[in-house]
Amino acid sequence: MINAIWLFLIASGVVLAVFKGTMEEVSAAVLGSVSSSVELFLGLVGVMALWMGLMRIAEKSGLVGTISRGIRPVMHALFPAVPPNHPAMGAMVMNVTANMLGLGNAATPLGINAMKELQKLNPRPSVATNAMCTFLVINTSSVQLIPATVIGLRLAADSGNPTEIVGTALIATTVSTLAGIISVKALQRLY
């Protein structure tokens, strides 16, 4: 599916550019996107090094284990195939915690770390496991408690009440996360 969507984005873009006369913009975007991916990568290298270094300390000191013990029943229900004491559990808990707190910088490295741990349990290394899919859907459905960036934008746009959307966003994000978990569990038999 990801192949089809990738192809679709490129093909529809180029074909439309012919008709709309936006080929120059598209050419510029090609070069621009390549250099911005390197910029993004440079940003990522630093924070990846930082958070994976810290995670290594937190794992060895037993901190990760302590934090994840509290929500073990929930984790076990979501990821039945992952042994409760496996490092993947701790890594996933750390990622979700960082996401909830809105620490986007920390969440990505911690999430990648969790994927690497999950990959150690994968019998077919190029095919995603159920646990990986569930973990990813939880990530893409957003579990952030306070959307600080949006509040900032609203503040900048002179809103009478920039934080009034905290509650609505929290409800909406809960709905989307629940829908994600239900559909990922329902679909896993079909793929």
Binding site: M1, I2, I5, I112, M115, K116, L118, Q119, P125, S126, V127, A128, M132, C133, L136, V137, T140, S141, G180, S183, V184, L187, Q188, L190, Y191
Partner: peptide, 14 residues
């Protein structure tokens, strides 16, 4: 990051 090629049902569920 882990070299997964077959993403299975992730995209529809997401």
């Amino acid at each position: 990051a882990v070299g997964i090629k077959n993403t299975r049902h992730v995209l529809p569920a997401a």
